[in-house]
Simulated assay, not measured.
Amino acid sequence: MSHSSYTKIFTGNFIMVQRIVSELKELDIIPVIKDQTESARLGGFGGGILPGFQEVYINNDELEKASEIIKNISENSEYQ
């Protein structure tokens, strides 16, 4: 089994992902965004399972700081 130094902290729509990315960058945390639908489209394979949804990954060293941001956004989100 491979070991990754990144952890998925959020899966959601583009708008929420952009909000999270913005707040992470304010703390100098650079996330990795994974969009399987867009990757499949660019590769010529069609759409993914959840069109419009993206995943946010961050380095394990920054997990504690990032978790607080996700918690705050989730608690204050009107999309709950």
Rank of each mutant, 00 (worst) to 15 (best):
S67H: 11
I58R: 02
D61F: 07
E68I: 14
D28C: 08
T37D: 09
E68W: 14
E62H: 04
S77C: 12
N72A: 10
T37A: 04
E55R: 05
L50S: 11
F10Y: 13
P51K: 05
V21F: 02
S77A: 12
I58D: 01
I49N: 01
I15E: 02
N60F: 05
V56N: 08
E26V: 11
I20P: 09
E64P: 01
E23Q: 15
F10W: 10
E78A: 15
L24Q: 10
K34T: 08
A40T: 02
I33G: 07
E26S: 13
I49V: 06
I73N: 13
K71V: 07
R19F: 06
E78K: 13
G12R: 01
F45A: 01
R41D: 00
Q18D: 08
Q36H: 07
I29V: 02
Q36T: 07
K8V: 00
I70R: 08
I70S: 07
P51A: 03
G46R: 09
V56I: 14
G48Q: 05
E62F: 05
S77D: 14
V21E: 04
G46D: 07
F45L: 06
N59H: 15
I15P: 02
K65M: 05
S77N: 13
S39Q: 15
S67T: 14
L63G: 06
G12H: 03
H3V: 08
I70H: 08
L42Q: 12
S77I: 03
Y6Q: 10
L24W: 09
I9C: 02
E55N: 05
E78W: 14
E68L: 14
L27R: 10
G52T: 12
